[in-house]
Simulated scan of single mutants.
Amino acid sequence: MSHISNLRKSYERAELNESASAANPMQQFDQWLKEAIDSEVPEPNAMTVATVSSDLRPSTRVVLIKGYDARGIVWFTNYNSRKGQQLAGNPFAALQFHWVELERVVRIEGRVEKVSDAESDEYFNSRPLDSRIGAWASPQSQVIEGRGTLVANAAKYGAQFLLQPPRPPHWGGYRLVPEQWEFWQGRKSRLHDRLRYRLDGEAAWVRERLAP
């Protein structure tokens, strides 16, 4: 049995303070994400999405961010999936980015809405052909007999749509509209930097430091 309780790491790469951070959390996120990409960390665009079911049980999964702007954070998925069903009943979620090599975490919480059909169509049509066929072939989160089911579905829809599969009606984008952000920077002696941004009213962001 491995002694995971003895694993230790000293966080000493960087710092995060109020004077050097952006007043707007989306600007701070943009800076950190670009630094993660420039640093070539593995899958800098991967994020964990946490949702809650109608019986108040949380669940998480990793998805890829596909866009962000002043309106929020966007990803795409099957609306009939487990997360889609949970968001239909409880349209709030939490996101988390963990860039291990940079000793950084970003947490985002807020309300989730579907993006427009035009946005979903535009992104779907930009995907590789096999990914577009895959959106039709996979009944995401449902029990299937085996991988052969997916292969057979892919062959069926590939033959049906050839090179121009339309976007499935059950597939599209979600946008999380942030209400709270937290930026975490690992520091020595476990005295980590944590800056939280929370909405005060409709559009004013309050920045405050949290104890680690």
Score class of each variant (00 low, 15 high):
W205K: 08
L33E: 00
P169R: 09
G148R: 10
L87E: 04
E119F: 05
G201S: 11
A14F: 07
S2W: 09
E12K: 13
Y79N: 04
L199A: 05
G201L: 08
E182F: 04
V63A: 03
S53Y: 09
L7E: 13
S19D: 13
I37C: 06
V106S: 01
Q140A: 12
T48H: 06
G173N: 07
R8W: 07
I73A: 04
A204W: 05
T77A: 11
W136K: 08
E43S: 12
T77M: 05
N17F: 12
S5T: 13
R127K: 14
R82Q: 14
R111V: 11
W184Y: 11
E40V: 02
A135G: 05
M47R: 06
R13D: 05
R187C: 07
R175A: 04
V206R: 14
T149Q: 15
V206E: 13
R104K: 13
E119W: 05
S19M: 10
P44A: 02
Y79M: 06
T149M: 11
A211K: 11
N153F: 08
L102M: 08
Q85C: 12
P169W: 06
Q140F: 13
Q185R: 02
T48G: 05
Y174D: 03
V74P: 01
A23S: 14
K66H: 10
N17H: 14
L199V: 08
L176P: 01
A203H: 13
W99F: 01
D38C: 04
A93H: 04
V52L: 11
Q180F: 08
Y79A: 03
W99V: 00
L163P: 02
P42G: 08
S2G: 08
P44G: 04
F29Y: 04
L87M: 11
T48Q: 08
A152E: 15
V115K: 00
I108G: 00
A20V: 09
E12Y: 05
K34R: 13
F76A: 02
D193A: 02
P139E: 12
R127L: 15
A20H: 07
T60F: 06
D200S: 15
A36T: 01
N80Y: 10
A154N: 09
Q160W: 07
N17L: 06
Q31T: 15
S116L: 05
G134R: 06
I108V: 15
V177H: 03
D117I: 11
S189I: 05
F97I: 00
S141I: 09
P139M: 09
G72M: 03
Q96F: 02
H3Q: 15
S5L: 13
A46P: 05
W99N: 00
R196L: 09
A155N: 13
E15P: 01
R13F: 11
T77C: 10
R196Q: 15
K66V: 03
D193W: 02
